[in-house]
Amino acid sequence: MRKRERENPCGVCGHYHKYEEGEVCETCGHRMLATSEKASVHFSAFPSEILPQFLYLGSYDNASRSELLKTQGISRVLNTVPACQNLYKNSFTYHCLQDDKSLSFDDANQFLENCERDKARVLVHCMSGKSRSPAIVIAYLMKSKGWRLERSHQWVKERRPSIDLAEAVYQQLQEYERKLFGSTDGPDSSTPVFPSLDVQPFSFGFPKTDDQVPMPAFNNIAATSIFSRPNFEGPPQEFTFGAGLSQNNNTCHNSNSSSDVQMDSS
C-alpha cells in the first residue's frame, strides 16, 4: 500500500481504501453510495431517536462520527454486523453480535436492558440502518414494552422512515413474537382483555325484557265489554236468590186472603 493511501484513510469508516472511487472496504465492507442510491435514501449525519434520551438507531456512517455521537450523549454502541469494525473503543462501550445470518435477540436485549438500567444512551447500528439494526430495536420494544410486532414496527417506521426489513429478518421477528406471546394472532398486549364470566343477572322476581308477558284480559277482543247491555229476553235460568222466601210469602198471602173472605161472609 502506498504511503499516500496510508496518510489518507477513509473519512467514513477510518480504513484505508479508495472510498471516493467506490472501492469496497476489505475490513468492514463499507462503500460509497451510488448517485441513484443517494437520491433515494434520506441521509442524516445524526442517528434516529427511537426512545427519548435512551435508544438510537442508525447506520455504520452514523457510528463512525464519534463527535456527533458525543453531542447526543451516546456512550454505548450495539454493532449488529460482525464485519463492521468498532472504531472508537477508547470512547464508547461496544457490544457486537457474532452471527451474521441470524439475529440473536436475547443477547441484544440483555445488553440494551443493561444500558437502560444504567441510564446510558446507546446506538444500535448495522451497515445501512435499514434492516438488521431496526429488527433488533423492534425486538427490544416487543420485549420491554410488551408490544406486538405490528405496533413495534410502526413505532420505529414513524421515527426512521427509511427502514426496509428483509424478508428473512421479518420472519425471525415473527418467530420471536411467537416466542414472547405464544402466537402471531391476537390483540395487542397494551389492550386489556377481560375473560367473559357466565353469570346469571339478578332479576328480583321480575320478568326479563325478552320474556313473553301475557296480555290483560280487558284487551281481549272476545271478552264481553262492561258497557254492553245484558240480554233480558228470557227469564233467568239459574237465579235462586230469595226463591224460597217468595214461595212462603205467597202461601201466607193466600191464607190471609181466605180468612178475610170468611170474615166478610160472617
Rank of each mutant, 00 (worst) to 15 (best):
S228H: 07
L173G: 11
R121K: 15
P9A: 02
A83D: 08
S183D: 07
K38H: 02
G182K: 10
N79W: 00
M32W: 00
C96T: 15
F46V: 09
K208L: 08
L165V: 03
K70L: 15
V124G: 13
Y94G: 08
S190N: 02
P192S: 01
P161K: 15
E233N: 05
H30V: 05
S183K: 11
S266V: 12
T71N: 05
T35C: 01
I221Q: 10
L33Y: 01
K89Q: 12
E233M: 06
G182P: 06
A39I: 12
A223Q: 04
R148C: 02
K70T: 15
G58C: 06
D264L: 13
H95A: 06
N254A: 15
H253M: 13
A166L: 13
E26K: 08
T80S: 10
F206S: 02
A166I: 07
K38R: 11
S183E: 02
A139P: 00
K119C: 02
N256W: 13
V156W: 04
R132P: 02
P236W: 01
Q53I: 10
R160C: 01
G29P: 01
D198E: 09
S257G: 06
E177R: 10
K179G: 08
R76V: 12
H17R: 10
E26A: 04
D107N: 07
P201R: 08
L165Y: 07
A243E: 10
C84D: 14
H95G: 01
V81Q: 14
T35E: 07
H15D: 08
P9Q: 06
R31K: 06
E233V: 03
L245N: 08
Y56F: 14
S183R: 11
T209C: 05
A223H: 04
D100S: 14
G244R: 13
V122E: 01
L173N: 10
R178D: 08
F194M: 01
W147Y: 08
N8C: 04
N250M: 08
K18Y: 07
E67Y: 09
E150Q: 15
E5F: 10
R121M: 05
E175R: 15
Q171M: 14
T93N: 10
V261M: 14
Q262C: 06
D106N: 12
A135L: 01
P195Y: 00
G14P: 07
H253T: 13
L123R: 09
H125C: 00
L141G: 05
S266W: 03
T240M: 04
E26H: 04
A222S: 11
S258F: 11
L55Q: 10
F181M: 09
G73I: 07
A168H: 15
N62K: 09
S228K: 13
H30M: 02
V41W: 05
A135P: 03
N220L: 03
Q237D: 04
G29C: 03
V199W: 00
D260F: 10
L51W: 05
R151T: 12
C84P: 05
Q53D: 15
